[in-house]
Design a binder for these strands. Structure first.
Lengths: 262, 262
DNA sequence: TAGTGGTCTAGACCACCAC
DNA sequence: TGGTGGTCTAGACCACTAT
């Protein structure tokens, strides 16, 4: 069946096998486009189609003037379960993340903190139980892990809660927003997480430094008090560097933590 | 800044705006490559580069002989939380899924059921607490929703449990594997879910009928009894048609169920 | 400066689909 | 049968990186 495949797919399959078989390891340079052209006796454009295919699968990266290399992946884990985030700082997004990354031996940092007031889109309005167009306070930033951009986070608060709890500052809130809200009686009792995936938009790709062929994990958490939604947090994770973990039920033992390739 | 962008990016940006602005709606046909070539005064290859960009973003689909259209997305939801799956058939994968899809007004079906005996890879061995190379029973199938392929699922059982519980049949297990295991004293008390994303491999792309630029959600659930791991379930979700939902803590009210675009 | 990938052109033939 | 996208060639010039 591989015989009737188009040339560029056969070439891509060849390289894919070499990568999966270990002849080409993470970080290794692939032959140049000119070399490939000679080796396979095809036009440069066909070589580029083959490379594009592998780029779209997230296996290789090309850089102008430098060459094409096999990608390597370092995955960090984000524990999202209720019990675990309760243990770590009342599920405060900022501090909990710092603590978890430190436990994994990573250094995390925040960049580009921003506070905006935005009208509620239909989706936001529905989830936060406000009217479409109502003002919301958006607090967003870029998370870095070991100096590399890792995720974009954007939290939306109903205006009355934000005002009451002092969230209208363009800075980090000491102790975290969840704690500030709890102090005013808005205590979180649970949340709903929605997880999807898609390809990044150009600006997301740029901010997260994503290569071609890297999807993002879209993670929406709606946090509730006993009477109303308190906050919606939208996180865009770089798909090649992150893993979400939920631990549910009561498990004793068997907490093996490792990479899972397939 | 758009002025100095390469031509094909400018063209892609143009079309992207038309799609997001609503001039081009889901299902609409884009101009043909020949039309685009005339409109923009570029070569056909440049048009194809622009289209490829949008395909990689999951926004359009081209079909030989038919044309290029704007993609549409119907997202189905998969509730993964502990409490909810307990309610639905003791978290049995098969029946729980049927019930949930029916509740959402979808018809689900299973195809290509397969039972294999495979040696444990390092990753599988680690998670199931067996030795690398030990025999595992793999039970896999393709899930369809409304006639369209939706996800690939592959469950791995330690050989002794599979034998004891009658899981070595190449058929569906009546009542579900979890129930069969519980009947023999292997009662699940919790699980760990790991969620990542990546681009599909060619065979996954084919089986799930994925377009170019569609990532997959990779979902690994390790189920535990009070003494040992019972099962590992690897699910590959078509990223353009699925959403994972976790509900954590005790939330009363505010169960708005809707699509979330961004 | 030499070599790499990035962009772009102008053409050709083929495979598939709708008519 | 005509029109569509899919594949492929053979060039050209540019932008970036290394040396």
């Amino acid at each position: 069946m591989a015989q009737s495949d188009p040339l560029y797919r056969q070439i891509a399959a060849d390289l894919r096998e070499q990568i999966r078989g270990g002849q080409l390891k993470a970080g290794d340079r692939l032959p140049t486009e000119a070399d490939m052209r000679e080796q396979y006796g095809v036009s440069r454009n066909t070589v580029r189609l083959a490379f594009a295919q592998l780029q779209n699968e997230g296996m290789i990266t090309s850089t102008q003037g430098r060459g094409t290399i096999v990608r390597e992946q370092v995955i960090t884990t984000y524990h999202a379960s209720w019990a675990e985030s309760r243990d770590r700082m009342s599920s405060d997004q900022v501090d909990a993340f710092h603590a978890e990354q430190a436990a994994q031996g990573h250094k995390s940092a925040y960049r580009d903190f921003e506070m905006r007031i935005v009208p509620a889109s239909p989706e936001l309005a529905e989830r936060l139980s406000v009217d479409e167009g109502d003002s919301l306070v958006s607090r967003s930033f870029l998370r870095q892990v070991d100096g590399e951009p890792s995720s974009l986070q954007d939290s939306y608060y109903p205006m009355d809660i934000a005002q009451e709890c002092g969230l209208l500052t363009p800075h980090d809130v000491p102790g975290g927003a969840i704690r500030a809200m709890a102090a005013k009686g808005h205590v979180e009792i649970g949340y709903i997480d929605e997880v999807t995936t898609r390809m990044p938009r150009p600006d997301e790709s740029r901010k997260l430094g994503l290569g071609i062929g890297t999807p993002v994990l879209v993670y929406v958490r709606t946090t509730y008090s006993d009477t109303r939604p308190l906050r919606l947090t939208l996180t865009i994770f770089a798909g090649d560097r992150n893993r979400l973990v939920y631990e549910l039920g009561d498990i004793s033992g068997y907490h093996g933590e490792n990479g899972y390739a397939s």
